[in-house]
Design a protein around this nucleic acid. Structure first.
Lengths: 137, 137
DNA sequence: CAGGTGTACTGCATGTGATGGTACACTACG
DNA sequence: CGTAGTGTACCATCACATGCAGTACACCTG
């Protein structure tokens, strides 16, 4: 379900959040899907239940999943809970942060933009097209 | 010289590193320029000398500045100390990290790419043209 | 009722960031 | 020579986030 990499600089809880968020964005997890239980995932990954619970709390806070007590956590239909101003602000912050991280690598601007574009488009390849006209032969 | 924002989530030392690196990239600091002394900048920003020293150590480690003991720190001519494979790896890591940060905002891919492109191009406007034909009037 | 679920606390250990202080080696200037 | 200013290297301390461990509670289903 979720992979935890010990060498990853990200905290474990963030790896879980990112992993599940990515599965939702790519369509691997559709609205209504049940995600692993707190204790189940903690057992599988041999980590603490609190760590999983905190990751799930963040996902709930983001509005990506919904908890039904006694039942489990389920993927929510896509919503929009941030104001446009807040979204805009966060995008700008993250863009600047990203630039600070890679500006020292001395890549041409176009290379950076292209690389980002590739990775972004790679995500949406199979989540918007249940029928994929592959144009094979 | 450098602005420290208390509300910034980045550590103080990172703000210094990012700030000076940006001034070098944009051409505001040219090779040979002297950057503020450890004690001087610490005094000016009312922070600890160790914090500034650690930031400067990182800049030295990145090869952006060079320390001449007893004299101060000076901006180095642009170099390339990372292997191509290492650069490539870091770019990929940062791109993925950036995507994880902004994918939840639900912006169209093109919007994200455009925003990044704008911000990147905004940096190089005045560092490649010592003579800026402003075409005034 | 029992078992599985999410949630909320407490305590403890660790790593990082930041501070404060001290000390040393180096350079330039009188 | 001595002094002042420079980068650098320690040490101790504190605050905070992360993760672990344990416990408890409220909820749903069978």
């Amino acid at each position: 379900m979720i992979q935890i990499v010990t060498g990853d600089p990200r905290p474990i809880s963030k790896q879980i959040v990112d992993g599940i968020r990515m599965k939702i964005v790519t369509g691997e997890l559709v609205p209504g899907s049940k995600i692993p239980s707190v204790r189940g995932l903690a057992m599988q990954l041999t980590i603490n239940t609190n760590t999983v619970a905190r990751a799930y709390a963040k996902l709930t806070d983001e509005g990506l999943v919904e908890a039904r007590k006694g039942l489990g956590l389920f993927v929510c239909p896509p919503r929009q809970l941030l104001s446009d101003a807040e979204r805009e602000k966060r995008l700008g912050e993250q863009v600047d942060k990203f630039i600070n991280e890679i500006i020292g690598l001395n890549y041409p601007n176009q290379t950076i933009v292209d690389r980002l574009s590739e990775r972004l488009n790679a995500l949406n390849t199979f989540h918007n097209s249940p029928n994929n006209p592959k144009q094979a032969k």
